[in-house]
């Protein structure tokens, strides 16, 4: 029998080491990866949650070298927890990832940022990001604002609150403001029937096909497009207004209910939407054209019902004149 030695590496990976049995108990069924926004974006299995579990196992046994590529995988996760919700083996995937991160940081092996937020030279050191980070991941090291990569959950709230635009998430997996704006305009410009953009936070389990594509004949008449922006905390005026510049009739945003939000993103979502609705009212546009819904995790049916009601409402209003 070909066997693997685990003892020497386990010593080095002291945080990850405690998950050795869990990593064996994961049956590698793969049920987690349909839920992962990274897998959705790249289509590579090696970006999915199972891949990180396999990599963590490989790091522990020494079968995987802590190369840039392997480390980058461990530091790439939005902590949306959908993989954990889907895992009936009960593997605490994100806790495993966090412990792997702690070991790699302690070994001075954090070579790339992955989805960890970073700070550019434009930073004015106003410290707003430190106050607003819901995970206490940002700190002032005496010279610069830094991020603890084992605490950062890549929710992107620092990116949205930074007045200098200095906080960034290098690998956004399609969730950056630019990516979302671009995808919204492509949909609105290429579908005659297009009426609305729905910004969904990943926790909301948006309805629709997860990993396949419908024939053009089925999608050409679509009147809305769902775009995943990860967290309601990342909603801001520019993003919400962009679809209207492409003649959208309305914009809907979804975030978690107050008591379910992992990142306090609902606070910002409510604030941003309320502000825009007031602006709409002031310029004589029906504020109902912009709407926030709070969807409990996993409730695709409710989400679909809310979208249908919103589209019905827009149909009555017609386009903005």
């Amino acid at each position: 029998m070909k066997t693997k030695t685990v003892k020497t590496k386990t010593k080095k990976f002291k945080h990850l080491g405690k998950w050795q049995d869990t990593l064996a108990n994961c049956i590698r069924c793969g049920y987690c990866f349909e839920h992962c926004p990274m897998f959705h974006h790249t289509g590579w299995e090696s970006d999915a949650p199972r891949a990180k579990i396999v990599t963590a196992f490989g790091l522990l046994t020494g079968e995987v070298e802590p190369s840039y590529s392997a480390i980058d995988k461990m530091f790439s996760c939005f902590y949306c927890l959908r993989c954990e919700a889907a895992c009936s083996s009960g593997v605490a995937l994100t806790k495993v990832f966090t412990d792997a991160r702690k070991d790699l940081v302690e070994m001075d092996l954090q070579e790339g940022p992955g989805t960890t937020s970073t700070t550019t030279l434009q930073c004015a050191r106003c410290l707003v990001c430190i106050e607003e980070c819901p995970h206490e991941a940002r700190f002032y090291d005496g010279k610069n604002i830094a991020t603890d990569p084992s605490k950062c959950q890549s929710c992107g709230i620092c990116v949205e609150v930074c007045p200098a635009g200095a906080a960034t998430i290098e690998k956004s997996f399609g969730t950056s403001r630019n990516d979302l704006t671009k995808r919204a305009s492509i949909f609105l410009q290429n579908h005659e029937s297009a009426k609305a953009i729905v910004f969904a936070c990943n926790w909301s389990y948006y309805p629709g096909l997860q990993a396949s594509v419908l024939p053009d004949s089925e999608t050409s008449g679509n009147d809305y497009e769902i775009l995943v922006n990860m967290c309601g905390g990342r909603l801001e005026a520019q993003l919400l207004m962009a679809p209207f510049l492409n003649n959208a009739w309305g914009v809907m945003a979804a975030c978690c209910p107050d008591d379910e939000c992992e990142h306090k993103g609902y606070l910002n979502a409510k604030k941003q939407i309320e502000k825009l609705r007031k602006t709409f009212k002031n310029i004589d546009i029906d504020p109902e054209r912009i709407q926030l819904v709070q969807i409990p995790a996993g409730n695709k049916t409710l989400f679909q019902a809310e979208i249908d009601t919103f589209i019905e409402k827009l149909n009555k209003m017609g386009p903005i004149r």
């Binding site: 049956i27 590698r28 069924c29 891949a51 990599t55 079968e63 190369s67």
Partner: peptide
């Protein structure tokens, strides 16, 4: 993909 860390992942299933 040819990086060993990717190949390792694709070397497994259930």
């Amino acid at each position: 993909k040819t990086d060993p860390s990717d190949l390792y992942i694709y070397g497994t299933d259930s």
